[in-house]
Each structure stands twice: as C-alpha cells, then as structure tokens.
C-alpha cells in the first residue's frame, strides 16, 4: 500500500512500492489518459507532472512518487480548458491522439517554467516526446499560440 497525491487528492494504491507509476495510474487508479508507449522513457506518452516537472511515469516507481504532487492529463484542468488544451484545439493538433496527453503535459510544464520559450527551446523540450502521426509542426504552432495567449 502506497499513498499518493494525484490531481489534488490523496489516494491509497494497493500495489508494491516498486510498481511503475504509469501502471498504478492506469490500472489501479483508472486514470487511462496517461498512455503506455515504450516503458523505457523513450517516447513520452506517459508524461505526467511531478511537482510541476514533466516526468516519464513509466520510469518512476510509486514508492518514489509518494509525497510528491502528481498531476495527470485528467487533472490538468477542470473542464479541458487549460490554455495548452485550447491551443491544441485551435491548431487542430491531434491525429490518432495516443501521444497527445504526454505532449500536452510536457508543453504545459514548459510554459509554466518558461512562459515565452523560443522556438529552439520548444523544440529542445518537446524532443523528449515521440509522435508517429507527424503532428510535430502543429505542436510547435500550438505552443507558440499558448505562449502568446498566456
């Protein structure tokens, strides 16, 4: 049993401390918006915020996550109207959508830490996350839009 703080709530997870946070979120807490893509910290589909920092949830155990503020895509905004989410709609970013929770979480953390990132800073930060459909050009535009509107 591990106690976590997820999306502002304290929850008990009935799993061993070495369980990857990704699988605890998905299968124990039923927060399915955080996706499994590689389990190796290579694709970023599982990106969540740990104390505000974009983190691969497949690479962190729930034991290590205990005590931290964990935010998933479900907790990013109450009604899906975070400025990054709005910019994602305005730029019509997603195709299959599978990687997009992770992309949005990384973009939101970037803007929280650096409200006016340069294009190069956007590219450097977002290089952690893969998108196989090829939505990259729209991801850049959406982050630039969210930065301007933020």
């Amino acid at each position: 049993m591990v106690t976590l703080n997820v999306n502002g709530r304290t929850v008990d997870v009935n799993a061993a401390p070495d369980t990857p946070l990704l699988w605890a979120l998905r299968d124990e807490l039923k927060l399915k918006g955080t996706r499994y893509g590689c389990g190796a910290g290579m694709c970023g589909a599982c990106t969540v915020h740990i104390d505000g920092q974009a983190t691969f949830s497949c690479q962190m155990t729930i034991g290590d996550a205990a005590g931290a503020e964990i935010t998933t895509i479900e907790g990013l905004s109450e009604t899906g109207d975070h400025r990054v989410q709005q910019a994602w709609i305005a730029e019509q970013v997603p195709q299959c959508g599978y990687c997009q929770s992770g992309q949005i979480m990384r973009a939101a953390a970037l803007l929280a830490n650096n409200p006016r990132p340069s294009r190069q800073e956007i590219v450097d930060e977002m290089s952690a996350n893969l998108c196989r459909c090829g939505t990259y050009p729209r991801i850049i535009r959406a982050i630039e839009r969210a930065a301007q509107e933020g």
Binding site: K30, K32, T34, T72, Q85, I89, G97, I104
Partner: peptide, 27 residues
C-alpha cells in the same frame, strides 16, 4: 470544420482498446 475527435484527444478521454476494462478481466 474542426475535427469532431480532437477536443476529447486533448483531455485523455478517448478509449483505445488498451484502456478497456471489463469486469473480472485478467491481464
């Protein structure tokens, strides 16, 4: 027109088969 599937894809809402849960299901 805006794609009908995009708002859901910004909130993690879409259910892919990997997200399906059925009572009594084994992994």
């Amino acid at each position: 027109v805006e794609r009908l599937d995009i708002p859901g894809k910004t909130t993690g809402a879409p259910v892919y088969s990997i997200d399906v849960e059925v009572p009594d299901m084994l992994h």
